[in-house]
Design a protein around this nucleic acid. Structure first.
Lengths: 187, 187
DNA sequence: CAAGGGCTATCTATCGATAGATAGACGGAG
DNA sequence: CTCCGTCTATCTATCGATAGATAGCCCTTG
C-alpha cells in the first residue's frame, strides 16, 4: 500500500483544509488520520507549502475535467449553470466544507507563493469556463462584458458558500443562488 | 495610559484578524505591535476567545451605527447601496484586508462558540439593514423575497471581497460590484 | 541462480520555535 | 494602604521539520 499513501494523504489533507483552512492543517493530525507518522507525510511532501500546492493543483485540474464534462453533457446554458452551482453546494452538504480555494483565498497573506499561484489558477479555470458557458447563449455581448459577468458569478457563488458555511445552514446557499437567478445574474 | 491599552489592543487585533484571520492572531505578535507584553493582553482579555468575541461584537456594533448613518444621509436607495459596497471596498484598499466576519466565517469550525455567536450577529445586522433599504424602494415585493434578496446581496458582496483579496486586486472587486448592478442584483 | 547494492517508504526520536495561558512580583495612583 | 495595570518568568502543548535506522523490493552482476 505504498503508492496509495500519497493519495490518502492528499485526500485527508484536502478534507482538512476544506474544513479548517490551510493554517488549520497539521502534519501530525493529518498523519494520524491517514494512519502513518508525520515524518512519512514529510517524505511525500517535504514542506507544508509543497503539500498545499499539490492539493490546489489537483483541485484545479479536477475542476477542469468536471466542468468540461458539464459542457459536454448539456447544450443548455441554464442546465450547465445549475450543475456548476451544485458542485459548490455539494461541498457544503459534505460536512459543511468550503471550496478549497475559497477558504485559501481568505488566508491569502499566510499562503506560500507556490500555493497562492495554484489558487489563482483555480480562479482562472472557473472564470474561463464561465466565459465559455456565457458565450454560448448570447453571442451579441461584448467579450469584456462576458468576462466581467463571469467574474461576478464566480464571486457571488463563492460568497454564497462562505456565508452559508458561516451560518452552518445549506438553505442559505440555496436561497442566495435562487436570488441570483431571479435577479438575472445567473442565466 | 491604562484605558487606552485595551482600545489599542483591540485596534491592532482587528487589523491582524482582517489580514491573517482569527487563527493567525497571536498574542505575542499582537503585544509586540501594541508595545506591551503578552501577559498584559491576557489581563484585558483572559482568553483568545474573549478577545475574538469582543472584536466581533464591537465590529457588529459599529456596523449598526455606520449603516444607520447611511439611511439617514440619503433617501436614495441606489446611493445607500453604493455607500454600503464602498464600506467593503475600503477594507480592501486598506492593506488588502477583509471583512472581519467574512474571514472568520471561513474559519467557522475553529471558532469558539462565543466568537461564532457574534459573527452570526454581524450577518444579521447586515441582512436586516439591507431588508430595510430594499423595503424603501419597492413596497410591492413580498417580505420573504426581500429577505432572500438581502441575503443574496450580502453574500455576493462578501464573495466579491473574498475573490478580490485572493487576487490581490481591488479592481476585481469593482468589476464584480458593477456586474451585480448591471445584472439588477443591486438596486 | 545467488549475492550484493541501491532505492522506497516508513519508523523512532528529537530539534528549535511558537502557541495560549498562568503565577507572582513590582510600582504608581487614589 | 490598597488596588489596578504591567511586568518577568515559566508552563504545557503543538507546530513544521530533520536525523538516522530499518525493512522490503528490484536490479544488476558474477
Amino acid at each position: 500500500m505504498t503508492a496509495d499513501t500519497r493519495q490518502e494523504i492528499m485526500d485527508a489533507a484536502r478534507a482538512m483544509v476544506q474544513t479548517r483552512g490551510y493554517n488549520g492543517l497539521s502534519f501530525r493530525e493529518l498523519a494520524k488520520e491517514v494512519g502513518v507518522k508525520s515524518a512519512s507525510v514529510h517524505y511525500h511532501f517535504p514542506t507544508k507549502g509543497d503539500l498545499g500546492a499539490a492539493l490546489a493543483r489537483r483541485y484545479a485540474d479536477e475542476a477542469i475535467e468536471i466542468l468540461d464534462g458539464f459542457l459536454e453533457a448539456s447544450q443548455d446554458v441554464g442546465a450547465c449553470m445549475r450543475m456548476y452551482t451544485d458542485v459548490f453546494r455539494s461541498a457544503l452538504s459534505n460536512d459543511n466544507r468550503m471550496c478549497l480555494c475559497g477558504i485559501m483565498a481568505a488566508e491569502h497573506d499566510d499562503l506560500p507563493a507556490e500555493v497562492r499561484a495554484e489558487v489563482d489558477r483555480f480562479t482562472d479555470v472557473n472564470i474561463r469556463w464561465l466565459v465559455k458557458l456565457l458565450s454560448r447563449g448570447e453571442s451579441k455581448a461584448a467579450t469584456g462584458t462576458v468576462a466581467q459577468r463571469a467574474l461576478a458569478i464566480f464571486a457571488a457563488v463563492e460568497g454564497a458558500q462562505l456565508v452559508a458555511r458561516g451560518r452552518g445552514d445549506i438553505a442559505v446557499y440555496d436561497q442566495a443562488i435562487e436570488a441570483y437567478r431571479a435577479a438575472g445574474l445567473l442565466p
